[in-house]
Design a protein around this nucleic acid. Structure first.
Length: 269
DNA sequence: CGCCAGGGACGAA
DNA sequence: TTCGTCCATGGC
């Protein structure tokens, strides 16, 4: 069972999966990546032209194309944000990054966990949570776990989340699950709102500030006119753009610019 | 505005 | 080996 997506350009698994936007893809010895999305564990490899998604169902081809953002012309986007030499450097360095279209609830929970933490630590917390509350998925003789649904996390209390090492964020997580279950936060509604309105709605949540809201908008709701500012992007903006504002500089393609900048600045320090 | 919060990764000593 | 600093920050 596999899907082959032909002629995929402007794509590199390593940069897409290791640029800090996702936490559930891991590199194999052969350079391919194994990850869990849509409740399925798959292995993705790329030969420079074609993407092979082993373990994926044929009927999910549309999902994977959307997930990998393959229908978007990155050449055009990169051109629109390459006005400075630093940006050209960042775009060259992060060649092949595509902004994944991740599931809303997973993105929300993951980025609440992410606040003031490090990527390896975030991955470890999420993995423990999936193991405890997600569904078992067998792939190539190994057991993986789906990201838990709101229903699966329904009974999880602050003390349950604490077991995964999320620390003081546990109380935020309990409340977030409740907000989604009660419909206080609703994906359909957020999608119907403008980016600014959806952002305001997310900011009403306990434990969700500007940075987390912007990550949810960008990675979970495909709002590319958002510009999450973490410590690295903050440094990059001060150092390379005199502290200028990302949205003002990059407009509707801010999200892409931000991702290339984040990955670039984090690597050079 | 300033302070503080899990806990692990990471580098310096 | 141990210690200090930092981390895809937000609440108070």
């Amino acid at each position: 069972m596999r899907i082959v997506l032909n002629n995929a350009m402007d794509f590199l698994p390593e940069h897409t999966f290791e640029c800090g936007q996702c936490f559930r893809w891991n590199k194999e010895k052969d350079g391919s990546f194994t990850g869990v999305a849509k409740g399925r564990a798959v292995n993705l490899s790329y030969d420079g032209r074609n993407i092979i998604i082993d373990g994926a169902d044929n009927k999910d081809e549309t999902f994977w194309r959307a997930y990998l953002d393959l229908t978007r012309d990155y050449g055009k986007i990169k051109e629109s944000i390459s006005s400075t030499s630093v940006m050209r450097e960042a775009l060259n360095f992060g060649y092949g990054i595509r902004i994944l279209k991740q599931e809303f609830f997973e993105t929300l929970i993951s980025f609440i966990i992410s606040q003031r933490s490090s990527i390896p630590k975030i991955k470890s917390c999420i993995e423990k949570m999936c193991r405890e509350y997600g569904k078992e998925i067998e792939y190539k003789g190994k057991i993986y776990y789906s990201f838990p649904s709101t229903e699966e996390l329904k009974e999880a209390k602050e003390s349950d989340f604490e077991k995964f090492g999320v620390g003081y964020r546990a109380k935020y997580l309990e409340r977030a699950v409740k907000d989604v279950l009660e419909g206080k936060i609703n994906e359909e509604e957020l999608l119907s709102l403008s980016t600014k309105e959806a952002r305001a709605k997310l900011l009403e949540m306990y434990g969700v500030g500007n940075k987390v809201a912007d990550c949810v908008l960008l990675f979970g709701l495909s709002r590319f006119d958002s510009f999450p500012v973490d410590v690295w992007v903050d440094r990059a903006m001060k150092e390379f753009f005199n502290g200028g504002d990302g949205i003002t500089l990059f407009g509707e393609n801010s999200g892409f610019a931000q991702q290339y900048l984040f990955y670039y600045k984090r690597s050079i320090g």
